[in-house]
Amino acid sequence: MTTEFKHLEKWEGTLASCIRCGYCFEHCPLMKHTGWESDAPRAKIITAFGLLSGNVQPTDYVAHRMFSCFYCKRCEAACSSGVDLTDIFDDAQRDLLGMGFPGPGTASVTFDNCARCLVCIKACPHEARSYDGDAIATDPVKCKSCGACVEACPAGAAQIIHNYGTGKTDLTEKVTQFLEEGPSAKAVVYACNWSFYPDLQASELPDEDEQERDYKILVNMCGGRLEMPVLMAPFLHGARGVMVACCPDDECEHQGNLRAKKLVESLKSYMEKMDMDTKRVELVQIKAGDKQDFQMHIDTFVDTLNQLGPLR
């Protein structure tokens, strides 16, 4: 047993109690994006055990894996063994940081074009950002990759480099592909990591069924991370409507749902000015795990869009 893992050590018994069922796979946005088992929560538990037992050596590569997590904690909710996965990730990160392996994984970083306006420090709900009189520093252990700083930064200096398909560019690319290639495509549903969305997790439908799809669910980090261009992108590619799914009031860990509400309201007011029906944009707040409620909202929304018809 290496003694360098002072924080991780206490989890040795818990790491053995993980039965490695893999039930966390379908819930992890990282795993779903890359399809690699080594990006799944189970892999982090195996890696943590490997670090403790000396079978895995600490490297930048390993640190990148252990610092990559959006902390939606869906893996914990699904865990057969009741393992406190994210607490283990935190302790592994503390030890790796202490050994000089800071990630960053999905933790946010600050680029040189930072104007030192300090807006990000105020925006961070996890007190992960600080200013030392010279530059902004991020504590990668405290950072929960919620992206509040990215959304707040006016200079675009705060960034999450590794966003596993949940970033703005990825989302707009997926929007374009769906709406341009899907003959039945009508709506885009943006769902945050916390949403237990009612859709295929890791497989693809037959071509005929895929072509009949009238909506697509795209996972983003948090409703609060959506920006106006991302929200409007579907309309630019012929969508009839856009739905934003986020957590209920008081259940969002980074007040992202409040920002999402403001954003949707802003879009609606633009739409009113442009004489567009505001029913084409809808925000729904879904309790974690309630797939049925989510599906019901989607079905109703698509019905509404069918009544409204295409945008003229």
Partner: peptide, 26 residues
């Protein structure tokens, strides 16, 4: 990929990496 869902002939064709729950959802 779920390659085909053939109702009249009562079979489906799938690739091996299709997840069981996903097949049932489809």
């Amino acid at each position: 990929k779920i390659l085909e869902i053939n109702m009249p002939d009562v079979y489906c064709r799938v690739e091996p990496g299709v997840v069981d729950d996903d097949l049932n959802l489809a």
